[in-house]
Design a binder for these strands. Structure first.
Lengths: 216, 216, 216, 216
DNA sequence: TATGAATGAGAATTCATTCAT
DNA sequence: TATGAATGAATTCTCATTCAT
């Protein structure tokens, strides 16, 4: 044990870590609100309550900071996904849960949607870094494959469903609704962000997915 | 015949129109490639081969130019949508066509996707202008409502399907796949942009939509 | 002839030219006083009485501006050199004149010395541009070669003198004295920049050069 | 033997000395490569493999560090100069040796040239410190005066030669050639840094100096 | 209608330097 | 003695926009 007057290397590191995390969170918010081009380093520093110079100290430049934010955000969602335990549920319920999870995650993490948008606007250039690419691989695909197989085995699900295609469909149905809600609200002249509308959407999505997967 | 020194008013107008369109196209490309914040007025002028000052002459400022681009892009898609004539087709075929149309339009107009992204990043602020709101209203909703009703009437489609929800699902499934293809390709380690992959996607989407709508 | 109200393209160009030259002069002074690293773009703009942005408009960046300054400075000295007409003078006088010219030019253009220093500090990187390299070629070498040859022919000069080596010696003797006058004054504890000291230096240099070249 | 935890004061001092020298060398290289304005404290620390803070601990600030480098560099050359023993040589040989020494020192210490440049760019401000002025005084002047006097006395050298002027000429001829080799190579289109070119230069310089000094 | 010149405000990035331990 | 974290003040460069013709 160390005395209070001679702080551990660990403690100093923890400070550095804390600063980095503070910056990362501030940057995530700024980038998600304004996009890469519209984000301001000044504002990020201000949000973080830290000196702007420190951002460069830890993250080199704006692009690299953006990349670090993306990596962080992916790490976060993957972590949540891994917590999902659908193995013991019957296939229909499991699939429903998976749809709900995706919907809720997007709903509760609107910044994830806009960051994903920005990342794609810049052609995925920021995740070209293959080192981190592995962490991108969603465990949901495996889960979904398992669910589909179990359902098919017990005779309730149709066969021949590509889990990747299905995952993209599930994600896309949530993503488009939530990510483009401003435009869609304007087009349809109805508020898509009320709790009621949210329930209806979730219900519709489950219907579509299960309507497709369930045998007859 | 007009003398070289005093062109007809008409001709000058035609020039003016041409310039405006040239700018609009250049701006559309720039905004779709870089987003609103990343777009550069200089580059737009360069792309258009026209003097930067002229952009301000016609479009006042960057924001208004962006808005004009959005309006143009909506006008374009609505025009294409209106050409779709699905009335005489049997409901199942009509619905399939509608899915195909959406998919193909997004595929052939990738700038539409990124511009829509940008518009939503900025919270739809650019289409708040009610004057143009009308052009936003997609005729596809009416068509879809009609198809669903016809299908239900003849007994092949299930009832109680909200055309707005279904439309969002159809659009979302195409949009997410195409708009996030860079990220998705990285995640799944498979090229989503080959012709074969495109066919498979379209086929999957039709299966999902029809699997959901078709009675039994 | 053009009316006063419709200024010529030429006139506008002349304005642009004037701005560029103003910038160039301001930059020359700043770079020669502070070196490339110590020069400040802000100060250059201030010296020029022009907007800083304009510097970038015309010269792209600091490095390119420095390069433009070097080119300008070379152009200037070459122009002066070309005015020297030594052909009709007897070789001894001609050589003396050449030494005087070099000395006086350096004396009257201290910025030339410091800029040359900076250019060499940066390893000549700034004049690697071969396009402009031609203008670097000093006419003095040709003149010197002619003088040496005439002197040798008439029997007053020794033979076998390499004009390039001699030119470097002439320049070096002036350059070192003037360019390092601060250090040298400190070392020798005597003011090297009085008119008397200048006369003595010039006289010494002529003695050395002619003492070497003159046959016996 | 000393325990690992409480090193002797002496040892610590030795470490301190070593650190200071390491910094000084790193700084010398950095300043000579980039000039005062272009040098970076970060890079100096990196070159030295030591923490940046330590530089400030020992040298206070950048300017003082630069000054320390200059002092060091002068100390070095003076030390070498003092090793020259020309007293026992006949005047002509002694003078030749002195030219050779100057040439070789500059050739082997290119950083000396650039540092001298920088010092003069900043108007000798950094050696105004009279305390160290003594070390500036080159012993070569005394030596040269002696040689000239001996030569004159034995009748081989001309009289009336100012040793300061001659020293400046000797130094200048080497300095200009070596310090501006990039520019000169570009101007003359010939590589001045080959061994052959070096020999020719040295030979030329001896010819000039001796051609001037030798009687008849 | 069209254009080159010019600008002020701002944005990213850099740098010497100091803090805390 | 030694170091990683942190900072304020520049500094280079950018950008949307306007002037003048």
């Amino acid at each position: 044990m160390t005395s209070a007057s001679t702080p551990l290397v660990e403690e100093r590191l923890r400070d550095a870590d804390r600063s980095q995390n503070t910056i990362l969170t501030a940057a995530r918010d700024e980038f998600s609100e304004h996009g890469l081009g519209g984000a301001r380093m000044d504002r990020i520093a201000e949000r973080a309550g830290l000196n702007k110079r420190l951002i460069y100290y830890y993250f080199e430049d704006k692009e690299k900071l953006f990349q670090a934010v993306l990596e962080q955000v992916y790490r976060d969602i993957r972590e949540e996904e891994r917590k999902l335990n659908l193995l013991h549920l019957k296939p229909e319920t499991a699939l429903r849960r998976l749809v709900e999870f995706t919907w809720n995650y997007y709903l509760e993490h609107p910044e994830f949607l806009t960051l994903l948008n920005s990342a794609n606007l810049h052609r995925g250039r920021h995740l070209a870094d293959s080192q981190k690419a592995r962490q991108l691989n969603s465990p949901l695909i495996e889960m979904l494959a398992g669910i589909l197989e179990r359902g098919r085995a017990e005779g309730t699900f149709r066969g021949g469903v590509d889990p990747v295609q299905l995952y993209i469909s599930i994600a896309g149905m949530s993503y488009f609704y939530l990510g483009n809600n401003h435009t869609l609200s304007a087009i349809f002249g109805r508020d898509l962000m009320t709790p009621k509308a949210h329930n209806e959407r979730l219900s519709h999505m489950c219907d579509v997915i299960l309507g497709y997967v369930l045998r007859n």
